[in-house]
């Protein structure tokens, strides 16, 4: 198994994550895709109407559903599980970051008139 923590240096920490505003900008340009890695029961309770829904435990089997030419922004309610998924997908060679603020932050950002900030 790869010793993935070895390459982590202070200057690289910020490359692990993407802010909600930067994500929205990249998404609107077609340069990023959202991947909601919550479990099915959570996704049933409430859904984001864009991006992909792939539960974390199904990622190993569903890698071919992920775009290779876009930045993948993995997200869960906060950032616990998305960070884990990020490490996994980075090891698999994807261009991937986790969404700072999580899905809850994203929903907060896209409320009211600001919902149209994202081009669906």
């Amino acid at each position: 198994m790869a010793n993935f923590p070895e390459n982590i240096v202070p200057s690289e920490m910020k490359n692990f994550r993407i802010s909600i505003d930067d994500f929205i900008e990249a998404y609107n340009k077609g340069e990023a895709e959202l991947v909601d890695i919550r479990v099915p029961m959570e996704t049933k309770v409430w859904q984001v109407n864009f991006g992909l829904k792939i539960p974390a435990n199904e990622l190993p089997k569903r890698l071919d559903e992920l775009p290779k030419d876009k930045l993948i922004a993995v997200a869960c309610p906060h950032t616990d599980r998305s960070n884990m998924a990020r490490v996994y997908l980075a090891e698999q060679g994807f261009n991937v970051k986790y969404l700072v603020g999580g899905l809850l932050g994203l929903m907060e950002r896209l409320k009211g008139g600001m919902a149209k900030d994202i081009n669906l």
């Binding site: 010793n3 960070n83 490490v87």
Partner: peptide, 14 residues
């Protein structure tokens, strides 16, 4: 916070 702690946790768990 817990960003890096989670990476470390994952590594040790594996």
């Amino acid at each position: 916070h817990y960003d890096r702690a989670e990476i470390a946790r994952l590594f040790l768990k594996l």
